[in-house]
Design a protein around this nucleic acid. Sequence first.
DNA 1: TAGATTGTTAATCGATTAACAATC
DNA 2: TAGATTGTTAATCGATTAACAATC
Lengths: 209, 209
Amino acid sequence: MYKSYIATPVIKRLPRYYRFLSELCAGGMTRISSKELAKRMGLTASQVRQDFNCFGGFGQQGYGYNIQQLKDTIGGILGLDQLQKMILIGAGNMGRAIGNEAFFNTCGFQLIGVFDKKPSLTGQIVNSIPVRHTDGLDEFCKENLPVAAALCIPNQEAKEVVRQLVGLGIKAIWNFTHYDPTADFPELIVENVHLRDSLMTFGYGIKNQ
Amino acid sequence: MYKSYIATPVIKRLPRYYRFLSELCAGGMTRISSKELAKRMGLTASQVRQDFNCFGGFGQQGYGYNIQQLKDTIGGILGLDQLQKMILIGAGNMGRAIGNEAFFNTCGFQLIGVFDKKPSLTGQIVNSIPVRHTDGLDEFCKENLPVAAALCIPNQEAKEVVRQLVGLGIKAIWNFTHYDPTADFPELIVENVHLRDSLMTFGYGIKNQ
DNA sequence: TAGATTGTTAATCGATTAACAATC
DNA sequence: TAGATTGTTAATCGATTAACAATC
């Protein structure tokens, strides 16, 4: 049964389903039951079926799910085929690492520009793209219309840069800073990657058994 | 009221509380009510009080919370003062970015070694530490007894490396690969950072409004 | 047909929010 | 004291799990 609104926990599980299904597919398997998939992923069969049925019934009673078809369907839901134009702001250590990880295309994005305000970085190559000086950001956006920006700059600079990006038509921020853009720009789509928070949570886990 | 087991959602909020309280503290504020803190963080006052009361009552009726004291208490719960020895496996783009982000000490960890199996990287400097060849991992661990490892290597190599690390006494993995160590080593403490998953979730958000 | 497994409803569990007496 | 705000219990909400009729 289709649902108009999909709960966040379901969305967050989709990439992991996609990953497991891709592996099963690559391994030559053609079908799988919710029970077996749940076992491999550490979920319950009930949850697997509930999750898939948010988007419609892709299974067959007595048979299970066709892996290839299920994988493609989830890929479609995640929109992996429609590549969104993304720019990267900040070509420091983290920026270069993100930029060079060649996963944009397989995750539904296309990296079209890299910017840094530090002149010494201008012209360096990140993922076959030359780093541009931030001075050229306006012109570049007006010409190329990116919808998303990965933000890998110091926290203090984040607010001002986000203001600029929003002015240039950026709709979504993949945020590696600790600045929270949602407070100032409620309409912006924001996905946070807080490595410090992850590290602290990790530490808590170690120190409490 | 103290609780013996703290729910995961509460733990995951602690670093964010710590961050906000640090900023308030740096800004010269000395006290805050659950209502005001909730408003700034986009939570409810009820949740803030529930969260803090998992660890005991640090507030005062009619007054609120002492920011400095609350910050220090949460820092203590997260164990930010007891630095755990961590090694970094993999000095590629992501490894170097993680290694160079100078946040280990402020998050409860101490980076004591960096390893890569690629000979050309041996001797390169990451965060003032020379990259060692993986051949020296055994000896290094026996001598320095790290408890945690950040894993920034290709997915296919992950399982074998984790097996080796577990053999060397590593108790916890900060995992940047897509290999799931919990399946093979249930006793291991694992904190996953799945950037691809984050990117796909982000894309879903963009494509569905 | 018989067995397997789905889609879906109902029950349970856990987390968040509301309410309020206690008290600074 | 009166006002403010906590700590804590109760109510609500949402997500997960269980159950089972439908059906391949």
